[in-house]
């Protein structure tokens, strides 16, 4: 593992560069194919509404995959991620238009641990609503 960030260079409260991740219906179809999750709530509006959703929603695992990019882009080596967990609190609703939705992710160092490890707490929102809760990663720095 070769993280590009030195343990000694961060402190509790250090902010990671925030990012915005766009998601359209086309993104969801592509993710369905790549992940093998073809649940129709992620591509069929009629089905989504029938089961009580406001519209098609993004795969929770898609949102989880985007959120950790704030960490992996920061450290450079994705293999530096030692732990990663989230709670799916609210769905990311993806309208059927060119713009779709976006997921805004920010992160900051929440704890310095032993062995060059740090805990990063992530915040992910879409349309002003928090879509992930308890979103935390433990990362090994250089």
């Amino acid at each position: 593992m070769t993280a590009g960030i030195a343990y000694g260079s961060v402190e509790v409260g250090t902010e990671l560069p925030a990012q915005s991740f766009p998601v359209t219906r086309a993104t969801l179809v592509q993710y369905a194919g790549a992940s093998g999750d073809f649940n129709p709530i992620h591509w069929n509006e009629k089905f989504a509404r029938e089961v009580g959703l406001p519209d098609v929603i993004a795969h929770g695992m898609f949102t989880m995959a985007e959120a950790i990019r704030v960490v992996t882009d920061w450290v450079g080596d994705p293999g530096a991620v030692v732990e990663y967990g989230v709670r799916f609190t609210k769905p990311v609703v993806v309208p059927n238009d060119e713009t779709g939705a976006s997921v805004e992710v920010s992160g900051k160092v929440a704890a310095l641990l032993d062995d060059n490890l740090v805990r990063v707490d992530l915040t992910a929102t879409s349309d002003g609503k928090k879509v992930l809760g308890m979103s935390r990663a433990v990362v090994r720095l250089a």
Binding site: G60, V82, E83, Y84, G85, F88, M134
Partner: peptide, 12 residues
């Protein structure tokens, strides 16, 4: 529905 998800990695 999927409530929580967590991973702990020994290696990638």
């Amino acid at each position: 529905v999927h409530g929580d998800q967590k991973f702990a990695y020994t290696r990638p």
